[in-house]
Design a protein around this nucleic acid. Structure first.
Length: 583
RNA sequence: GCGGUCGUAGUCUAGUCUGGUUAGGACACUGGCCUCCCAAGCCAGCAACCCGGGUUCAAAUCCCGGCGACCGCACCA
């Protein structure tokens, strides 16, 4: 019991009592995968339910599920195929590995954007011509090769079609955006959430449930009109405070979070969009509900070069873990219209939404008309893609390019002057078309599960009490006969069956002394224990014992279901149910 | 991937250096006895040398490889 490390203690408890453990142990284990046991599965479900209550209900957000295996095209479009790989070189002398592009930048002064353009072959050439050496031992370097952090597979037997395991659930939402938008009867703002597994082939997954190769993610994509970015719920949260470390502060030594109201954070542009601020507040509340105190939470802004390729502004929500210090638990990114625009470009499907003006307005403007009789024969199968691209193109830009270059590039297609007609037109505009912008809160569910356990872990007089908030406790109530004779066990089983049928996750235990059974129940965080004693046989009452206070109260059996419901849903305190027993 | 440390029941551990009885103990768990409210007691039981190869008459012990854990490097979009 003198272990210093909370992670070890909590993992040991998790393994012993069936919350989670490393997978495939009988075959020696496989790093980066965990198995949820019965209690862990329940806890995870309860946490997912909390996410639903907190994020979905207030805004009528829709939930969906898409597949994990995804055709390569999707991640080529989204930019992941390029961004999820790193060119690595290895020192042939000391075997250390480095990012090839970083070394090149450091030793030649080339810029980020310059090295980004280079492919593997070109990187290798540059390394040779600039005589790049190992920064540690000055040894010779190997040729660069890519380390791909997406799982790659083929789809179908004998097939050459490449698929990837999704590294985030978000793309499933973007890809299906049109249908989802129609399902929601074409209303904005629109929030879609997806919870499920995602895969990342981490180089060295450690830290148990905090860093996995297959993990559970909750991605919420919230689509809104960039010309109307007002958050309708802002009033409710404007005075809520957040612990923030905005980018400028982050660079300073001894960075420390500032506590600011949402109002101030928006005024000072620490947070760029109102909706993002709103979701950050929800995320803070969600974590508090899981038992994580406010002073162990903070939001830290990502510096431009730390951000994901799709992100215009990003905050990580972090939790202070006993072992690892500040650790990311959720990411809040302003993805702008990046993803929908990419999918529009690559698929040729128009991802724009149409919004009516209050009154139609008449404008005289340059109009571009694709000449279908010319485009059809030339582009054949791609014709509809070309037309979609042209309909989104700016007429003035196209005209300028045709004048200057004699052609215009739409996506990957070369448009010649005969393909389009550009005229002035009086157009009556009944509305406008635009690509919605997106803010995304994204939670690591496994980390939430672990965090709930770590913060619930407590010791009381040499024994473990898991102080899980009652709403997420996997087992809600335990039923014990005080002793297992004189008919008490039979009566206790009756009460147990009644509670299970009444919808509670209940457990029955008659093994060992009553104190031992209380201790066992405390260890897995059961909030209430019901004990059937001799008085029960006389007047049909039982004792209820509260995990956190060890106080007891007496309640009638026929009032039990209602009292327990009230307590477990936080509608009543322990003092409000039954008749307190004085000691 | 690299380097370092390590791997004995569910958990903690003795044994490993110096190869040699049936791998010992504690806690937990299961069954029984007992038990009128916080891990009491008694009896019985279940249960382990990470995997593979080598050396040897003999390997938990020595050697090699693999897997896993932890720490450091790198990585974490």
């Amino acid at each position: 019991m003198l272990k210093s490390d909370k992670y070890e203690i909590v993992s040991e408890l998790a393994r012993r009592r069936g919350f989670f453990w490393p997978s495939y142990e009988i075959y020696g284990g496989a790093s980066g995968f965990i198995t949820y046991g019965p209690l862990g599965t329940l806890l995870k479900q309860k946490i997912e339910e909390k996410i639903r209550n907190f994020l979905i209900r207030p805004l009528n957000i829709l939930e969906m599920e898409s597949s994990i295996i995804t055709p390569a095209k999707v991640f080529e479009a989204s930019g992941h195929v390029k961004a999820f790989r790193e060119p690595m070189v290895e020192c042939l002398k000391c075997n250390q590995r480095f990012r090839a592009d970083h070394l090149l930048q450091e030793q030649t002064g080339l810029s980020d954007t310059q090295t980004e353009k280079l492919n593997l072959h070109e990187l290798g050439k540059e390394i040779i011509t600039h005589r790049i050496k190992c920064p540690e031992c000055e040894g010779k370097l190997s040729l660069p090769r890519y380390f791909m952090t997406m799982f790659k597979t083929t789809i179908g037997p004998y097939s050459k079609e490449v698929g990837y395991g999704r590294p985030e659930a978000a793309q499933g939402i973007f890809v299906e955006f049109k249908r989802l938008y129609e399902t929601n009867r074409e209303k904005l703002p629109l929030g879609i959430i997806q919870m499920g597994h995602a895969l990342r082939n981490e180089i060295s997954p450690r830290q148990g449930p905090v860093r996995l190769r297959e993990f559970n993610i909750a991605d919420l994509e919230f689509f809104f009109d960039p010309e109307n970015p007002k958050c309708s719920k802002l009033k409710e949260i404007t005075n809520t405070t957040l612990h923030l470390i905005p980018a400028p502060l982050k660079k300073k030594e001894g960075k420390k979070a500032i506590e600011v109201t949402v109002k101030e954070a928006l005024q000072k542009a620490y947070i760029k969009t109102e909706w993002q601020a709103y979701f950050m507040v929800l995320a803070k509340h969600l974590l508090s509900e899981l038992g994580i105190p406010a002073d162990k939470q903070r939001f830290i802004e990502k510096l431009p070069w730390e951000r994901a390729h799709y992100s215009a502004q990003g905050y990580d929500q972090e939790i202070y873990f006993n072992r690892w210090g500040w650790t990311e638990i959720s990411g809040h990114n302003y993805r702008t219209d990046y993803d929908l625009r990419q999918h529009m470009k690559h698929s040729g499907v128009d991802m724009r939404v149409f919004k009516k003006h209050e009154k139609p307005i008449t404008v005289r403007r340059r109009v571009l008309e694709p000449v279908l009789t010319e485009i059809g024969p030339v582009f054949k199968n791609n014709a509809s893609k070309v037309i979609a691209l042209l309909s989104e193109a700016n007429a003035e830009e196209v005209e300028k390019s045709l004048d200057q270059n004699g052609y215009y590039i739409a996506g990957s297609f070369k448009i010649l002057p005969i393909h389009v007609k550009i005229t002035y037109k009086e157009v009556e505009e009944t509305g406008r078309r635009f690509i919605p912008h997106v803010v995304e809160p994204s939670f690591g569910i496994d980390r939430l599960v672990y965090a709930a356990l770590e913060f619930a872990y407590d010791q009381q007089k040499d024994r473990v009490v898991l102080r899980l908030p009652r709403e997420i406790a996997p087992i809600q109530v335990a039923v014990f006969p005080l002793v297992s004779k004189d008919g008490l066990a039979e009566k206790a089983k009756e009460v147990y069956v009644m509670l299970r049928e009444g919808g509670f996750m209940a457990e029955y235990d008659e093994a060992g002394s009553i104190g031992r059974r209380y201790a066992r129940a405390d260890e897995v965080g059961i909030p209430l224990c019901i004990t059937i004693d001799y008085q029960t046989l006389e007047n049909k009452t039982v004792t209820i014992r509260e995990r956190d206070s060890w106080k007891q109260t007496r309640e009638k059996i026929n009032a039990l279901v209602e009292s327990l419901q009230d307590y477990l849903n936080c509608k009543a305190n322990f003092a409000d149910i039954g008749d307190a027993i004085e000691k």
